[in-house]
Design a protein around this nucleic acid. Structure first.
Lengths: 257, 257
DNA sequence: CCTCGATCTCCCGCTCAGCGGAAGGACCGA
DNA sequence: TCGGTCCTTCCGCTGAGCGGGAGATCGAGG
Protein backbone atom coordinates (compact mmCIF):
# COMPACT_ATOMS: atom_id res chain seq x y z
CA UNK A 1 0.00 0.00 0.00
CA UNK A 2 1.49 3.25 -1.12
CA UNK A 3 1.60 5.79 1.68
CA UNK A 4 1.92 8.84 -0.51
CA UNK A 5 -1.09 10.23 -2.29
CA UNK A 6 -1.61 9.12 -5.83
CA UNK A 7 -3.73 10.70 -8.50
CA UNK A 8 -3.64 7.47 -10.48
CA UNK A 9 -6.91 6.28 -11.96
CA UNK A 10 -8.49 2.83 -11.68
CA UNK A 11 -5.68 0.71 -10.34
CA UNK A 12 -2.96 2.37 -8.35
CA UNK A 13 0.03 0.95 -10.16
CA UNK A 14 -0.53 1.00 -13.87
CA UNK A 15 2.57 -0.60 -15.28
CA UNK A 16 5.16 -1.61 -12.74
CA UNK A 17 3.73 -5.02 -11.88
CA UNK A 18 4.28 -7.10 -14.99
CA UNK A 19 1.82 -9.99 -15.30
CA UNK A 20 -0.23 -8.94 -18.33
CA UNK A 21 -3.83 -10.03 -17.77
CA UNK A 22 -5.14 -12.64 -20.17
CA UNK A 23 -8.80 -11.75 -19.97
CA UNK A 24 -10.17 -9.15 -22.33
CA UNK A 25 -11.60 -7.16 -19.44
CA UNK A 26 -8.32 -7.23 -17.60
CA UNK A 27 -6.58 -5.94 -20.68
CA UNK A 28 -9.14 -3.21 -21.15
CA UNK A 29 -8.57 -2.24 -17.55
CA UNK A 30 -4.85 -2.22 -18.13
CA UNK A 31 -5.31 0.13 -21.06
CA UNK A 32 -7.54 2.44 -19.04
CA UNK A 33 -4.99 2.52 -16.27
CA UNK A 34 -2.38 3.95 -18.60
CA UNK A 35 -4.20 7.26 -18.58
CA UNK A 36 -3.23 9.61 -15.84
CA UNK A 37 -4.16 13.01 -14.55
CA UNK A 38 -1.36 14.73 -16.40
CA UNK A 39 -1.15 12.25 -19.26
CA UNK A 40 -4.65 12.27 -20.59
CA UNK A 41 -3.76 11.89 -24.26
CA UNK A 42 -1.71 9.00 -25.55
CA UNK A 43 -0.77 7.61 -28.94
CA UNK A 44 -1.41 4.01 -29.85
CA UNK A 45 2.21 2.98 -29.42
CA UNK A 46 2.51 4.79 -26.10
CA UNK A 47 -0.51 2.84 -24.92
CA UNK A 48 1.03 -0.37 -26.17
CA UNK A 49 4.32 0.31 -24.44
CA UNK A 50 2.81 1.41 -21.15
CA UNK A 51 0.31 -1.39 -20.97
CA UNK A 52 2.80 -4.04 -22.00
CA UNK A 53 0.34 -5.36 -24.56
CA UNK A 54 1.57 -6.19 -28.07
CA UNK A 55 0.97 -3.44 -30.57
CA UNK A 56 -1.44 -5.39 -32.71
CA UNK A 57 -3.48 -6.38 -29.69
CA UNK A 58 -3.57 -2.81 -28.49
CA UNK A 59 -4.60 -1.66 -31.90
CA UNK A 60 -7.48 -4.09 -32.15
CA UNK A 61 -8.76 -3.35 -28.67
CA UNK A 62 -8.41 0.40 -28.97
CA UNK A 63 -10.25 0.40 -32.28
CA UNK A 64 -13.20 -1.34 -30.71
CA UNK A 65 -13.10 0.81 -27.59
CA UNK A 66 -13.27 3.91 -29.76
CA UNK A 67 -16.18 2.40 -31.66
CA UNK A 68 -17.96 1.80 -28.37
CA UNK A 69 -17.23 5.29 -27.11
CA UNK A 70 -15.06 4.17 -24.21
CA UNK A 71 -12.14 6.06 -25.74
CA UNK A 72 -12.15 9.12 -27.95
CA UNK A 73 -9.69 10.43 -30.49
CA UNK A 74 -8.77 14.06 -30.09
CA UNK A 75 -7.95 16.45 -32.91
CA UNK A 76 -4.42 15.08 -33.26
CA UNK A 77 -5.82 11.55 -33.40
CA UNK A 78 -4.40 10.81 -30.01
CA UNK A 79 -6.43 8.67 -27.66
CA UNK A 80 -8.16 9.84 -24.53
CA UNK A 81 -10.85 8.68 -22.16
CA UNK A 82 -14.20 8.91 -23.90
CA UNK A 83 -16.83 11.44 -23.01
CA UNK A 84 -19.25 8.54 -22.73
CA UNK A 85 -17.14 7.09 -19.97
CA UNK A 86 -17.38 10.40 -18.17
CA UNK A 87 -21.14 10.24 -18.56
CA UNK A 88 -21.16 6.71 -17.17
CA UNK A 89 -19.14 7.89 -14.21
CA UNK A 90 -21.89 10.34 -13.35
CA UNK A 91 -23.96 7.31 -12.35
CA UNK A 92 -21.43 6.13 -9.77
CA UNK A 93 -22.43 6.09 -6.13
CA UNK A 94 -20.36 9.18 -5.37
CA UNK A 95 -22.83 11.35 -7.20
CA UNK A 96 -25.77 10.87 -4.90
CA UNK A 97 -23.91 12.08 -1.86
CA UNK A 98 -22.19 14.80 -3.85
CA UNK A 99 -25.51 16.23 -5.01
CA UNK A 100 -26.85 16.24 -1.48
CA UNK A 101 -23.78 17.69 0.16
CA UNK A 102 -22.89 20.39 -2.36
CA UNK A 103 -25.40 23.05 -1.18
CA UNK A 104 -24.19 22.67 2.41
CA UNK A 105 -20.60 22.83 1.29
CA UNK A 106 -21.28 25.97 -0.70
CA UNK A 107 -22.85 27.44 2.40
CA UNK A 108 -19.80 26.60 4.49
CA UNK A 109 -17.52 28.02 1.86
CA UNK A 110 -19.53 31.22 1.51
CA UNK A 111 -19.57 31.91 5.25
CA UNK A 112 -15.99 30.93 6.09
CA UNK A 113 -14.09 31.41 2.82
CA UNK A 114 -12.02 28.37 3.80
CA UNK A 115 -11.38 25.26 1.66
CA UNK A 116 -14.12 22.64 1.99
CA UNK A 117 -13.67 19.03 0.86
CA UNK A 118 -15.96 16.04 0.50
CA UNK A 119 -14.52 12.52 0.50
CA UNK A 120 -15.89 8.99 0.45
CA UNK A 121 -14.36 5.74 1.71
CA UNK A 122 -13.10 3.37 -0.95
CA UNK A 123 -11.62 0.25 0.51
CA UNK A 124 -8.85 1.38 2.83
CA UNK A 125 -8.46 4.74 1.17
CA UNK A 126 -10.51 7.86 0.76
CA UNK A 127 -11.46 9.45 -2.53
CA UNK A 128 -11.92 13.20 -2.87
CA UNK A 129 -15.28 13.80 -4.51
CA UNK A 130 -15.72 17.54 -4.35
CA UNK A 131 -13.57 20.48 -3.42
CA UNK A 132 -14.48 24.12 -2.97
CA UNK A 133 -11.68 26.63 -2.62
CA UNK A 134 -10.43 29.92 -4.02
CA UNK A 135 -10.02 29.85 -7.80
CA UNK A 136 -6.31 30.45 -7.65
CA UNK A 137 -5.91 27.15 -5.78
CA UNK A 138 -8.05 25.21 -8.28
CA UNK A 139 -5.17 23.21 -9.67
CA UNK A 140 -3.41 22.43 -6.41
CA UNK A 141 -3.78 19.32 -4.30
CA UNK A 142 -5.93 17.68 -3.36
CA UNK A 143 -7.47 17.09 -6.76
CA UNK A 144 -10.92 15.70 -7.30
CA UNK A 145 -10.67 11.94 -7.68
CA UNK A 146 -7.49 11.73 -5.63
CA UNK A 147 -6.87 8.75 -3.35
CA UNK A 148 -5.38 9.15 0.10
CA UNK A 149 -4.66 6.75 2.95
CA UNK A 150 -7.25 7.37 5.64
CA UNK A 151 -4.98 8.29 8.50
CA UNK A 152 -3.20 11.19 6.84
CA UNK A 153 -6.21 13.35 5.99
CA UNK A 154 -8.92 14.87 8.15
CA UNK A 155 -11.75 13.36 6.16
CA UNK A 156 -10.08 9.98 6.28
CA UNK A 157 -9.78 10.04 10.07
CA UNK A 158 -13.43 11.00 10.39
CA UNK A 159 -14.35 8.04 8.20
CA UNK A 160 -11.96 5.57 9.79
CA UNK A 161 -13.11 6.45 13.30
CA UNK A 162 -16.63 5.34 12.46
CA UNK A 163 -15.76 2.33 10.30
CA UNK A 164 -16.38 -1.12 11.69
CA UNK A 165 -13.70 -2.30 14.14
CA UNK A 166 -12.30 -5.10 11.94
CA UNK A 167 -11.45 -2.59 9.22
CA UNK A 168 -9.85 -0.31 11.79
CA UNK A 169 -7.78 -3.20 13.18
CA UNK A 170 -6.63 -4.23 9.74
CA UNK A 171 -5.75 -0.64 8.93
CA UNK A 172 -3.81 0.00 12.13
CA UNK A 173 -1.94 -3.26 11.73
CA UNK A 174 -0.24 -1.88 8.63
CA UNK A 175 1.15 1.18 10.37
CA UNK A 176 4.40 1.48 12.24
CA UNK A 177 3.92 0.66 15.90
CA UNK A 178 4.26 4.14 17.38
CA UNK A 179 2.22 5.74 14.63
CA UNK A 180 -0.52 3.14 15.06
CA UNK A 181 -0.72 4.11 18.73
CA UNK A 182 -1.05 7.80 17.89
CA UNK A 183 -3.71 7.12 15.30
CA UNK A 184 -5.64 4.83 17.64
CA UNK A 185 -5.74 7.58 20.25
CA UNK A 186 -6.88 10.15 17.71
CA UNK A 187 -9.60 7.83 16.47
CA UNK A 188 -10.95 7.37 19.99
CA UNK A 189 -11.00 11.12 20.49
CA UNK A 190 -12.72 11.62 17.12
CA UNK A 191 -15.46 9.19 18.14
CA UNK A 192 -15.93 11.06 21.41
CA UNK A 193 -16.13 14.60 20.09
CA UNK A 194 -17.69 13.73 16.73
CA UNK A 195 -15.08 15.34 14.50
CA UNK A 196 -11.45 14.77 13.56
CA UNK A 197 -8.56 17.19 13.85
CA UNK A 198 -5.53 16.53 11.69
CA UNK A 199 -2.41 18.31 10.54
CA UNK A 200 -0.58 15.45 8.86
CA UNK A 201 -1.15 16.69 5.33
CA UNK A 202 -2.03 20.30 5.83
CA UNK A 203 1.30 21.55 7.07
CA UNK A 204 0.69 24.33 9.56
CA UNK A 205 -3.02 24.54 8.70
CA UNK A 206 -5.53 22.28 10.44
CA UNK A 207 -8.04 19.94 8.81
CA UNK A 208 -11.27 19.41 10.70
CA UNK A 209 -13.59 16.68 9.40
CA UNK A 210 -16.95 15.19 10.33
CA UNK A 211 -18.56 11.99 9.06
CA UNK A 212 -21.87 11.42 7.31
CA UNK A 213 -23.25 8.05 8.37
CA UNK A 214 -25.83 5.76 6.82
CA UNK A 215 -28.71 4.31 8.82
CA UNK A 216 -26.50 1.43 9.88
CA UNK A 217 -23.94 3.80 11.36
CA UNK A 218 -21.40 3.13 8.65
CA UNK A 219 -19.57 6.12 7.15
CA UNK A 220 -20.94 7.23 3.81
CA UNK A 221 -18.67 10.24 3.41
CA UNK A 222 -16.98 13.01 5.36
CA UNK A 223 -16.79 16.78 5.02
CA UNK A 224 -13.77 18.77 6.07
CA UNK A 225 -12.62 22.34 6.39
CA UNK A 226 -9.05 23.59 6.36
CA UNK A 227 -8.52 26.32 8.96
CA UNK A 228 -5.43 28.52 9.35
CA UNK A 229 -2.85 27.77 12.07
CA UNK A 230 -3.84 29.11 15.44
CA UNK A 231 -7.59 29.10 14.81
CA UNK A 232 -9.92 28.09 17.60
CA UNK A 233 -10.66 24.49 16.70
CA UNK A 234 -13.74 23.75 18.79
CA UNK A 235 -16.22 26.13 17.14
CA UNK A 236 -15.19 24.85 13.71
CA UNK A 237 -15.53 21.30 14.97
CA UNK A 238 -19.07 21.95 16.05
CA UNK A 239 -19.84 23.68 12.77
CA UNK A 240 -18.60 20.69 10.81
CA UNK A 241 -20.38 18.19 13.02
CA UNK A 242 -23.65 20.06 12.64
CA UNK A 243 -23.26 20.42 8.90
CA UNK A 244 -22.44 16.75 8.47
CA UNK A 245 -25.54 15.92 10.50
CA UNK A 246 -27.67 18.11 8.28
CA UNK A 247 -26.28 16.42 5.18
CA UNK A 248 -26.91 13.06 6.81
CA UNK A 249 -30.56 13.87 7.54
CA UNK A 250 -31.03 15.03 3.97
CA UNK A 251 -29.36 11.90 2.59
CA UNK A 252 -31.60 9.70 4.71
CA UNK A 253 -34.68 11.59 3.60
CA UNK A 254 -33.74 11.16 -0.03
CA UNK A 255 -33.54 7.41 0.52
CA UNK A 256 -29.91 7.39 -0.56
CA UNK A 257 -29.54 5.17 2.52
CA UNK B 1 -31.58 9.26 -34.52
CA UNK B 2 -33.91 9.95 -31.67
CA UNK B 3 -35.17 13.50 -31.75
CA UNK B 4 -36.13 13.73 -28.11
CA UNK B 5 -33.55 14.28 -25.44
CA UNK B 6 -32.22 11.23 -23.70
CA UNK B 7 -30.36 10.92 -20.44
CA UNK B 8 -29.17 7.49 -21.44
CA UNK B 9 -25.54 6.68 -20.82
CA UNK B 10 -22.98 5.25 -23.25
CA UNK B 11 -25.20 4.04 -26.07
CA UNK B 12 -28.55 5.65 -26.55
CA UNK B 13 -30.68 2.52 -26.76
CA UNK B 14 -29.53 -0.03 -24.22
CA UNK B 15 -31.72 -3.01 -24.89
CA UNK B 16 -34.20 -2.57 -27.70
CA UNK B 17 -31.88 -3.53 -30.56
CA UNK B 18 -31.32 -7.25 -30.12
CA UNK B 19 -28.04 -8.45 -31.62
CA UNK B 20 -26.01 -9.36 -28.54
CA UNK B 21 -22.36 -8.50 -29.17
CA UNK B 22 -19.98 -11.43 -29.29
CA UNK B 23 -16.86 -9.57 -28.28
CA UNK B 24 -16.06 -9.28 -24.61
CA UNK B 25 -15.74 -5.52 -24.89
CA UNK B 26 -19.05 -5.25 -26.64
CA UNK B 27 -20.66 -7.26 -23.89
CA UNK B 28 -19.06 -5.11 -21.22
CA UNK B 29 -20.39 -2.08 -23.00
CA UNK B 30 -23.82 -3.68 -23.13
CA UNK B 31 -23.70 -4.23 -19.39
CA UNK B 32 -22.63 -0.65 -18.74
CA UNK B 33 -25.45 0.61 -20.90
CA UNK B 34 -28.01 -1.05 -18.67
CA UNK B 35 -27.35 1.56 -16.03
CA UNK B 36 -29.40 4.67 -16.30
CA UNK B 37 -29.78 8.00 -14.57
CA UNK B 38 -32.67 6.82 -12.47
CA UNK B 39 -31.70 3.16 -12.37
CA UNK B 40 -28.22 3.31 -10.98
CA UNK B 41 -28.41 0.14 -8.91
CA UNK B 42 -29.24 -3.23 -10.44
CA UNK B 43 -29.18 -6.83 -9.30
CA UNK B 44 -27.33 -9.49 -11.23
CA UNK B 45 -30.46 -10.94 -12.78
CA UNK B 46 -31.79 -7.53 -13.71
CA UNK B 47 -28.52 -6.90 -15.50
CA UNK B 48 -28.76 -10.25 -17.21
CA UNK B 49 -32.31 -9.62 -18.35
CA UNK B 50 -31.73 -6.09 -19.55
CA UNK B 51 -28.52 -6.87 -21.34
CA UNK B 52 -29.88 -10.03 -22.93
CA UNK B 53 -26.76 -11.91 -21.83
CA UNK B 54 -27.15 -15.36 -20.24
CA UNK B 55 -27.11 -15.31 -16.48
CA UNK B 56 -23.93 -17.29 -16.10
CA UNK B 57 -22.13 -15.07 -18.57
CA UNK B 58 -23.35 -11.97 -16.80
CA UNK B 59 -22.26 -13.42 -13.50
CA UNK B 60 -18.76 -14.18 -14.70
CA UNK B 61 -18.28 -10.80 -16.32
CA UNK B 62 -19.76 -8.85 -13.44
CA UNK B 63 -17.55 -10.65 -10.96
CA UNK B 64 -14.47 -9.64 -12.86
CA UNK B 65 -15.69 -6.08 -13.41
CA UNK B 66 -16.19 -5.72 -9.67
CA UNK B 67 -12.72 -7.11 -9.06
CA UNK B 68 -11.32 -4.53 -11.46
CA UNK B 69 -13.29 -1.70 -9.89
CA UNK B 70 -15.39 -0.97 -12.95
CA UNK B 71 -18.50 -1.86 -10.98
CA UNK B 72 -19.13 -1.58 -7.26
CA UNK B 73 -21.49 -3.40 -4.96
CA UNK B 74 -23.55 -1.20 -2.70
CA UNK B 75 -24.68 -2.05 0.81
CA UNK B 76 -27.49 -4.27 -0.46
CA UNK B 77 -25.05 -6.07 -2.73
CA UNK B 78 -26.62 -4.50 -5.74
CA UNK B 79 -24.41 -3.47 -8.58
CA UNK B 80 -23.61 0.06 -9.60
CA UNK B 81 -21.06 1.93 -11.65
CA UNK B 82 -17.73 1.87 -9.86
CA UNK B 83 -16.19 4.89 -8.23
CA UNK B 84 -13.05 4.10 -10.17
CA UNK B 85 -14.97 4.55 -13.37
CA UNK B 86 -16.05 7.95 -12.16
CA UNK B 87 -12.40 8.74 -11.45
CA UNK B 88 -11.47 7.61 -14.95
CA UNK B 89 -14.18 9.84 -16.38
CA UNK B 90 -12.49 12.83 -14.78
CA UNK B 91 -9.72 12.37 -17.35
CA UNK B 92 -12.08 12.73 -20.32
CA UNK B 93 -11.63 15.68 -22.65
CA UNK B 94 -14.66 17.47 -21.22
CA UNK B 95 -12.81 18.24 -18.06
CA UNK B 96 -10.20 20.55 -19.52
CA UNK B 97 -12.77 22.91 -20.94
CA UNK B 98 -14.96 22.57 -17.86
CA UNK B 99 -12.12 23.64 -15.57
CA UNK B 100 -11.37 26.66 -17.75
CA UNK B 101 -14.97 27.74 -18.22
CA UNK B 102 -16.29 27.29 -14.70
CA UNK B 103 -14.95 30.54 -13.21
CA UNK B 104 -16.46 32.55 -16.06
CA UNK B 105 -19.72 30.69 -15.71
CA UNK B 106 -19.79 31.40 -11.99
CA UNK B 107 -19.23 35.03 -12.79
CA UNK B 108 -22.13 35.07 -15.23
CA UNK B 109 -24.34 33.30 -12.76
CA UNK B 110 -23.43 35.62 -9.91
CA UNK B 111 -24.13 38.79 -11.90
CA UNK B 112 -27.30 37.67 -13.70
CA UNK B 113 -28.76 34.98 -11.45
CA UNK B 114 -29.89 33.18 -14.62
CA UNK B 115 -29.18 29.53 -15.54
CA UNK B 116 -25.84 29.04 -17.27
CA UNK B 117 -24.94 25.88 -19.20
CA UNK B 118 -21.81 24.52 -20.79
CA UNK B 119 -22.05 21.92 -23.56
CA UNK B 120 -19.63 20.17 -25.88
CA UNK B 121 -20.20 18.64 -29.31
CA UNK B 122 -20.25 14.85 -29.43
CA UNK B 123 -20.85 13.54 -32.90
CA UNK B 124 -24.12 15.05 -34.05
CA UNK B 125 -25.34 15.75 -30.55
CA UNK B 126 -24.34 18.00 -27.71
CA UNK B 127 -23.51 16.88 -24.20
CA UNK B 128 -24.22 19.06 -21.18
CA UNK B 129 -21.02 19.30 -19.17
CA UNK B 130 -21.82 21.84 -16.49
CA UNK B 131 -24.90 23.61 -15.29
CA UNK B 132 -25.27 26.45 -12.80
CA UNK B 133 -28.74 27.33 -11.61
CA UNK B 134 -30.75 27.92 -8.47
CA UNK B 135 -30.55 25.00 -6.04
CA UNK B 136 -34.27 24.30 -6.24
CA UNK B 137 -33.86 23.51 -9.95
CA UNK B 138 -30.88 21.20 -9.39
CA UNK B 139 -32.74 18.05 -10.32
CA UNK B 140 -34.62 19.39 -13.34
CA UNK B 141 -33.58 19.16 -16.94
CA UNK B 142 -31.17 19.54 -18.45
CA UNK B 143 -29.07 17.19 -16.38
CA UNK B 144 -25.32 17.04 -16.53
CA UNK B 145 -24.32 14.40 -19.06
CA UNK B 146 -27.51 14.75 -21.03
CA UNK B 147 -27.46 14.42 -24.82
CA UNK B 148 -29.48 16.69 -27.06
CA UNK B 149 -29.79 17.07 -30.81
CA UNK B 150 -27.95 20.21 -31.80
CA UNK B 151 -30.78 22.15 -33.40
CA UNK B 152 -33.13 22.15 -30.41
CA UNK B 153 -30.87 23.80 -27.85
CA UNK B 154 -29.12 27.16 -27.80
CA UNK B 155 -25.70 25.67 -27.16
CA UNK B 156 -26.23 23.17 -29.94
CA UNK B 157 -27.05 25.86 -32.48
CA UNK B 158 -23.98 27.84 -31.47
CA UNK B 159 -21.88 24.73 -32.02
CA UNK B 160 -23.55 23.62 -35.23
CA UNK B 161 -23.25 27.09 -36.77
CA UNK B 162 -19.47 26.92 -36.50
CA UNK B 163 -19.02 23.24 -37.37
CA UNK B 164 -17.54 22.35 -40.73
CA UNK B 165 -20.03 22.58 -43.61
CA UNK B 166 -20.14 18.82 -44.37
CA UNK B 167 -21.37 18.09 -40.84
CA UNK B 168 -23.94 20.85 -41.15
CA UNK B 169 -25.15 19.45 -44.48
CA UNK B 170 -25.42 15.95 -43.08
CA UNK B 171 -27.26 17.27 -40.07
CA UNK B 172 -29.74 19.38 -42.01
CA UNK B 173 -30.41 16.51 -44.41
CA UNK B 174 -32.00 14.55 -41.57
CA UNK B 175 -34.51 17.23 -40.71
CA UNK B 176 -37.93 17.76 -42.22
CA UNK B 177 -37.73 20.07 -45.20
CA UNK B 178 -39.36 23.17 -43.70
CA UNK B 179 -37.57 22.79 -40.40
CA UNK B 180 -34.25 22.38 -42.18
CA UNK B 181 -34.89 25.67 -43.93
CA UNK B 182 -35.62 27.43 -40.62
CA UNK B 183 -32.54 25.98 -38.99
CA UNK B 184 -30.33 26.88 -41.94
CA UNK B 185 -31.49 30.49 -41.68
CA UNK B 186 -30.88 30.59 -37.94
CA UNK B 187 -27.41 29.12 -38.41
CA UNK B 188 -26.50 31.83 -40.90
CA UNK B 189 -27.72 34.48 -38.52
CA UNK B 190 -25.79 32.89 -35.65
CA UNK B 191 -22.60 33.01 -37.68
CA UNK B 192 -23.19 36.67 -38.46
CA UNK B 193 -23.96 37.94 -34.98
CA UNK B 194 -21.75 35.47 -33.12
CA UNK B 195 -24.39 34.00 -30.83
CA UNK B 196 -27.47 31.82 -31.14
CA UNK B 197 -31.00 32.60 -29.99
CA UNK B 198 -33.31 29.67 -29.46
CA UNK B 199 -36.66 28.94 -27.85
CA UNK B 200 -37.23 25.38 -29.08
CA UNK B 201 -36.59 23.75 -25.74
CA UNK B 202 -36.97 26.59 -23.31
CA UNK B 203 -40.70 27.20 -23.72
CA UNK B 204 -41.34 30.90 -23.28
CA UNK B 205 -37.79 31.58 -22.02
CA UNK B 206 -34.98 32.27 -24.46
CA UNK B 207 -31.65 30.45 -24.70
CA UNK B 208 -28.70 32.52 -25.88
CA UNK B 209 -25.49 30.65 -26.66
CA UNK B 210 -22.00 31.46 -27.87
CA UNK B 211 -19.30 29.11 -29.11
CA UNK B 212 -15.77 28.53 -27.86
CA UNK B 213 -13.54 27.69 -30.83
CA UNK B 214 -10.18 25.99 -31.08
CA UNK B 215 -7.31 27.48 -33.06
CA UNK B 216 -8.61 25.79 -36.19
CA UNK B 217 -11.98 27.50 -35.83
CA UNK B 218 -13.76 24.29 -34.86
CA UNK B 219 -16.22 24.46 -31.96
CA UNK B 220 -14.82 23.13 -28.70
CA UNK B 221 -17.85 23.96 -26.58
CA UNK B 222 -20.59 26.53 -26.11
CA UNK B 223 -21.90 28.52 -23.17
CA UNK B 224 -25.51 29.55 -22.88
CA UNK B 225 -27.76 31.59 -20.66
CA UNK B 226 -31.53 31.20 -20.26
CA UNK B 227 -33.24 34.58 -20.08
CA UNK B 228 -36.89 35.23 -19.20
CA UNK B 229 -39.46 35.94 -21.94
CA UNK B 230 -39.45 39.54 -23.09
CA UNK B 231 -35.83 40.24 -22.14
CA UNK B 232 -33.72 42.39 -24.40
CA UNK B 233 -31.75 39.79 -26.31
CA UNK B 234 -28.91 41.82 -27.79
CA UNK B 235 -27.11 42.84 -24.59
CA UNK B 236 -27.18 39.25 -23.37
CA UNK B 237 -25.94 38.10 -26.75
CA UNK B 238 -22.95 40.41 -26.49
CA UNK B 239 -22.33 39.33 -22.92
CA UNK B 240 -22.26 35.68 -23.94
CA UNK B 241 -20.12 36.33 -26.99
CA UNK B 242 -17.59 38.23 -24.91
CA UNK B 243 -17.54 35.60 -22.19
CA UNK B 244 -17.08 32.79 -24.70
CA UNK B 245 -14.21 34.75 -26.22
CA UNK B 246 -12.59 35.13 -22.81
CA UNK B 247 -12.91 31.39 -22.17
CA UNK B 248 -11.48 30.75 -25.60
CA UNK B 249 -8.43 32.94 -24.99
CA UNK B 250 -7.86 31.19 -21.68
CA UNK B 251 -8.22 27.73 -23.27
CA UNK B 252 -5.73 28.65 -25.96
CA UNK B 253 -3.28 29.97 -23.40
CA UNK B 254 -3.50 26.78 -21.42
CA UNK B 255 -2.59 24.85 -24.56
CA UNK B 256 -5.80 22.88 -24.36
CA UNK B 257 -5.92 23.75 -28.10
C1' DC C 1 17.05 11.76 -53.83
C1' DC C 2 17.31 7.67 -50.42
C1' DT C 3 17.51 5.84 -45.67
C1' DC C 4 16.31 5.15 -41.14
C1' DG C 5 13.15 5.17 -37.46
C1' DA C 6 8.94 5.88 -35.93
C1' DT C 7 4.17 5.63 -36.53
C1' DC C 8 -0.30 3.08 -37.63
C1' DT C 9 -2.95 -0.60 -40.21
C1' DC C 10 -4.07 -5.13 -41.79
C1' DC C 11 -3.94 -10.18 -42.36
C1' DC C 12 -4.46 -14.97 -41.03
C1' DG C 13 -3.78 -19.50 -38.75
C1' DC C 14 -3.53 -21.26 -34.01
C1' DT C 15 -5.38 -21.82 -29.35
C1' DC C 16 -7.07 -20.98 -24.99
C1' DA C 17 -10.30 -17.61 -22.79
C1' DG C 18 -14.72 -17.44 -22.47
C1' DC C 19 -19.08 -19.29 -23.26
C1' DG C 20 -23.46 -20.89 -21.36
C1' DG C 21 -26.45 -24.97 -20.26
C1' DA C 22 -27.33 -27.30 -16.31
C1' DA C 23 -27.34 -28.40 -11.52
C1' DG C 24 -27.60 -26.97 -6.87
C1' DG C 25 -27.98 -23.99 -2.77
C1' DA C 26 -30.07 -20.05 -0.20
C1' DC C 27 -33.82 -17.40 0.85
C1' DC C 28 -38.76 -15.88 1.03
C1' DG C 29 -43.69 -15.66 1.01
C1' DA C 30 -47.82 -18.51 0.34
C1' DT D 1 -44.18 -28.15 1.91
C1' DC D 2 -44.01 -26.12 -2.31
C1' DG D 3 -42.96 -22.82 -6.10
C1' DG D 4 -40.76 -18.79 -6.86
C1' DT D 5 -36.81 -15.85 -6.93
C1' DC D 6 -32.16 -15.05 -6.37
C1' DC D 7 -27.02 -16.19 -6.72
C1' DT D 8 -23.11 -19.43 -7.45
C1' DT D 9 -20.37 -23.13 -9.51
C1' DC D 10 -18.91 -26.62 -12.76
C1' DC D 11 -17.09 -28.28 -17.11
C1' DG D 12 -16.51 -29.59 -22.06
C1' DC D 13 -16.77 -27.28 -26.53
C1' DT D 14 -15.43 -23.63 -29.78
C1' DG D 15 -14.86 -19.33 -32.11
C1' DA D 16 -13.22 -14.78 -30.42
C1' DG D 17 -9.19 -12.95 -29.89
C1' DC D 18 -4.37 -13.32 -30.06
C1' DG D 19 -0.08 -11.55 -31.94
C1' DG D 20 3.86 -12.25 -35.23
C1' DG D 21 4.76 -10.32 -39.23
C1' DA D 22 4.21 -7.72 -43.60
C1' DG D 23 3.43 -3.35 -45.40
C1' DA D 24 1.84 1.52 -45.83
C1' DT D 25 2.81 6.24 -44.29
C1' DC D 26 5.11 10.09 -42.55
C1' DG D 27 9.12 13.18 -41.18
C1' DA D 28 13.81 14.05 -40.01
C1' DG D 29 18.53 13.78 -41.40
C1' DG D 30 22.10 13.00 -44.76
Amino acid sequence: MSVLASGTPMCDRPETAEPVPKSALGRAHRLFSCFHYDETRLTLSELSRRSGLPLSTTHRMVTEMVRLGMLDRDRDDRLCIGVNLWRLGLLAGTYGIQRVALPYMQDLYATTGLPIHLAIPQGEQTTVVESLRPLEQRLERPRIGQHDPMHVVGNGMAILAFSDPPLQQRYLARLACTEAEDVRRELARTRTIGYSVSTRRTGPSIAIGAPVLDRGGRPLAAISIIVPPGSAVTPYGHLMRDTAHAVQRMAWDQALV
